[in-house]
Design a protein around this nucleic acid. Sequence first.
DNA 1: TACTTAATTTCGGAG
DNA 2: CTCCGAAGTTAAGTA
Lengths: 217, 217
Amino acid sequence: MRLVVARCSVDYSGRLDAHLPLATRLLIVKSDGSLSIHSESGFKPLNWMSPPCVLSEAPGVWRVTNKGGEQLVISLEEVLHDTSHELGIDPGLVKDGVEAHLQVLLAERCHVLGEDMALVRREYPTDIGPVDLLCRDAEGYVAVEIKRRGEIDGVEQLTRYLSRLALDPDVQPVRGILAAQQIAPQAKVLAQARGIGVCVLDYDELRGLEGTTPTLF
Amino acid sequence: MRLVVARCSVDYSGRLDAHLPLATRLLIVKSDGSLSIHSESGFKPLNWMSPPCVLSEAPGVWRVTNKGGEQLVISLEEVLHDTSHELGIDPGLVKDGVEAHLQVLLAERCHVLGEDMALVRREYPTDIGPVDLLCRDAEGYVAVEIKRRGEIDGVEQLTRYLSRLALDPDVQPVRGILAAQQIAPQAKVLAQARGIGVCVLDYDELRGLEGTTPTLF
DNA sequence: TACTTAATTTCGGAG
DNA sequence: CTCCGAAGTTAAGTA
């Protein structure tokens, strides 16, 4: 990995056209061929080229190109810093608490959706894709769409599943519940208009940690 | 901006929990209080804290917290590089060719949607938000939803607009067209099922550059 | 401030 | 390879 601090201007042309006026910035050149340009604020680069790409270095001008025909031209006015570092491969990030995890937890505790709610199966198949959970209670079957944040998209998605499930003789009658850690106001309104239930999930409750003291640092 | 190369492990807890095993990485500390952690590959950070956040530096341990209760703990085994640089404020990125631009261009050349298509107005208001373009031809009015990439969301969005426009006596009859540079297969199917037309936009044609030689470098 | 929508979204997984 | 949906999405515009 090479770190360069330089006064530069940048022109990108590819999926769109973009330009960065002359200013002092950080250029990161990684060994996978990616290049990114950072300013003093924000954790996202101002501009970048995704790997794999090729850096051609001439005095005062770097030209980065990739297979897709994208091009980045960096005009260097003054180089203030230029160092290289060997980082080696990275074991990568381990995540916990994403949507897939919510699905596992809710499958184990679907009674949070209703007193007598029982799991039929996870990833119940339809011809337009699998429903996150299929449950049932005294009133019939329940298709559950799980989201970290329930928005209009989630309601639309569940609506499409329900329209398919309505044709499935094995699961009649069937209704829908959108289960999410947060639910957007518009999503709530649209769900209600369509007779879809909503359920706000509590992550700690799902993990069985209700009432326990959170870890403090 | 401070650049640190160090062998470190990282624990994040906040919107989810995540962990980075011990490895050599680049840490970028920016003056807006953001911190990001980069590996040797990819232009996105492995982990980060968005500004504003506070870095508390103890020997061998950095602790970064923000108002939302998110926390990043970095255990430093060995610091290989540590420099600081003054970058100053950045004039920022100038973009050309995004959706707003497509709307301007298509408004000027809406005949690409049909021989006798004429623009009524851009951003035609409904009570659930403005339609990108309202046009008309011999058959009646046409609501146009413009996307860089047309996906199911776009079809749903246009459907919602059409359901409102159907109640607007000023624009009867009205049909819909999804116009995008690319259109996903699912979106095409759903659009057809709803009687919504699709139109693939050619950026060069919209700019009036059809047939001209692209600039080469 | 809250909410909505675009994004050079990026990224990963399934078919 | 394409296609599809999630993301600590992020970021920008608007009410």
